[in-house]
């Protein structure tokens, strides 16, 4: 079991409110991602759940038990840190065993769990090494192994992949997703990378300045962003925003179109000049200037497109995919 409920949770450091009153429920077995720009309070929120920070006010319930005053060790949660936080003076085996040792789990049970975790995480050959002798990816796996063996009510991940290089990150992303499929344990995952959020989450919580901007499944956020902030944050490359006459025509203060929802069409209403064209093979990203709409419009065209720097281009937004926002940035319609 691992349902986590936050009720009117607030956190202030001195005079600054990091988290204004916040309510959120994370269902048992859910993979929930907190995403937002740095300084949005997502890590603080995770640390509040972990018990590493005191609540200023409000209640945190784990499986309907008030856990607000429970010390971190007693909450039954496991955490994977950004820096991995492995104990450098202990072997991999001892690192993984540490939480069980603290919980006085019998030695043979400890060994059984260690072997199982090591097998699942491909660490069997490294059990007697020190963390310093491992690569980044391996260290990350040890940290996950240390979390798994506790059989926690929920896993907390604090930007676990940000210290890995790009290729490894993709691999570990898949491994964590697979782990979730296998264990079906609640996972709360903090990241600033919207790609991680989109690919892994059952539920994404978008945060800005401690506020929840929107909660929903990845595709809900993609299709129906509540406001300009979410619209701009979810999706890559970023959504194009257009203000002025073109927006007013649609009765909005600003409109947003994702790069993949702009077609190159000879009869399109928008004209411009191709700046940089990024040819990826599967897609071509065009950065279009001089449209009179925005500084740059990013266009994602399927496959290989023969346009080059300086070529004129006409563009057509897919009308059904145009998002409209009011002056405050909230979604219209």
């Amino acid at each position: 079991m691992g349902q986590i409920t936050l009720e009117n949770v607030t956190k202030s450091f001195g005079d600054t409110d990091v988290i204004p009153p916040l309510n959120l429920t994370i269902e048992d077995g859910e993979f929930c991602v907190f995403v937002g720009p740095s300084g949005c309070g997502k890590s603080t929120l995770l640390r509040l759940i972990a018990g590493l920070e005191d609540l200023t006010s409000g209640t945190i319930r784990i499986d309907d038990q008030d856990a607000s005053q429970v010390p971190p060790a007693k909450r039954g949660l496991a955490m994977v840190f950004q820096s991995y936080a492995l104990y450098p003076h202990m072997s991999v085996r001892k690192n993984i065993a540490f939480p069980m040792r603290m919980a006085n789990i019998p030695q043979d049970e400890q060994n059984r769990r260690i072997e199982a975790a090591a097998k699942a995480l491909n660490l069997t050959d490294y059990l007697d090494r020190r963390p310093g002798q491992l690569s980044g990816g391996q260290r990350q796996r040890v940290a996950i192994g240390r979390a798994i063996v506790r059989e926690p009510a929920a896993f907390l991940f604090d930007e676990p992949l940000s210290n890995l290089d790009a290729a490894l990150r993709v691999g570990m992303r898949l491994e964590i997703s697979e782990l979730h499929e296998r264990l079906k344990t609640t996972m709360i995952y903090v990241t600033h990378d919207q790609v991680e959020a989109m690919t892994m989450a059952d539920k994404i919580v978008v945060l800005r300045a401690g506020h929840i901007e929107q909660v929903g499944s990845p595709l809900e956020l993609y299709r129906q962003p509540n406001n300009r902030f979410v619209a701009g944050f979810i999706g890559s490359p970023k959504m194009n925003f257009v203000t002025g006459a073109e927006a007013e025509k649609l009765g909005a203060d600003s409109i947003g179109v994702r790069p993949e929802h702009i077609d190159i069409a000879d009869d399109g209403p928008w004209r411009g000049t191709v700046g940089i064209a990024e040819h990826l093979g599967s897609d071509t990203f065009l950065h279009v200037h001089d449209t009179g709409l925005a500084d740059t419009l990013t266009v994602r065209a399927k496959g290989e497109v023969g346009l080059r720097h300086g070529d004129p281009v006409t563009l057509a937004p897919q009308e059904s995919q145009v998002h409209r926002f009011d002056a405050a940035g909230a979604r219209l319609g």
């Binding site: 840190f81 540490f98 603290m102 506790r150």
Partner: peptide, 12 residues
């Protein structure tokens, strides 16, 4: 973070 990890791991 290492000390926090220890705390999470159940160390008093």
């Amino acid at each position: 973070e290492i000390l926090e990890a220890a705390r999470m791991d159940g160390a008093g």
